[in-house]
């Protein structure tokens, strides 16, 4: 019961953080909201029994990547974003579209009974289990990710280099 209550609380915090992330105009505020989202997601993973994933989430996302974000924002000395006058079409179609989309997904999620549900907190995702998946069943996607990272690095080099 406590597990479920905590799960719901962190879920609400994550959603509020995500909405705040978009609503804020200053990049630093947005970045700090992202920390909240990442942190509460880590708590969710822990509560679901994926302890390894929870730890990685804290170390990599809430830690390393967010520090990088904040550093970049500070180095660029980015100020508050300028508000453009949002186009009417975006508001007229976008907001109802978003509401309909969210309702449809929420409805589908509520209606989903796959027979494979597990109560919150009763799963156990160990480092061993993840290692087994990563280096056996999902070996190819894991290795191919290196190509993805290589391409991204090349892109950064190509686009950032000063032309002589």
């Amino acid at each position: 019961m406590l597990h479920l209550a905590l799960f719901l609380i962190f879920g609400v915090i994550a959603v509020v953080g995500a909405i705040n992330l978009i609503a804020q105009t200053h990049p630093i505020n947005s970045a700090l909201s992202l920390v909240v989202v990442m942190g509460s997601l880590a708590a969710e993973y822990l509560l679901l029994g994926a302890e390894f994933l929870g730890a990685i989430q804290v170390i990599v996302y809430a830690g390393a990547i967010m520090v990088l974000f904040v550093f970049t924002i500070m180095l660029l000395n980015a100020g508050a974003e300028e508000q453009t006058r949002g186009s009417k079409v975006a508001i007229i179609i976008g907001i109802p579209g978003m509401v309909i989309g969210s309702v449809a997904v929420a409805w589908a999620l509520i209606r989903a009974h796959t027979g494979a549900e597990v109560p919150v907190g009763s799963l156990y995702g160990s480092a061993q289990g993840i290692g087994h998946l990563l280096f056996r069943d999902f070996l190819l996607p894991f290795e191919i990710t290196s190509v993805l990272i290589l391409i991204a690095i090349m892109g950064a080099v190509v686009l950032a280099r000063r032309e002589s």
Binding site: I144, T145, L148, I151, A152, M154, G155, V158, L159
Partner: peptide, 16 residues
């Protein structure tokens, strides 16, 4: 999962 990673490789390559 693999389809997604492959899709990303092809997309990011073309973005650049």
């Amino acid at each position: 999962v693999l389809i997604f990673i492959a899709l990303e490789i092809s997309s990011i390559g073309t973005y650049i």
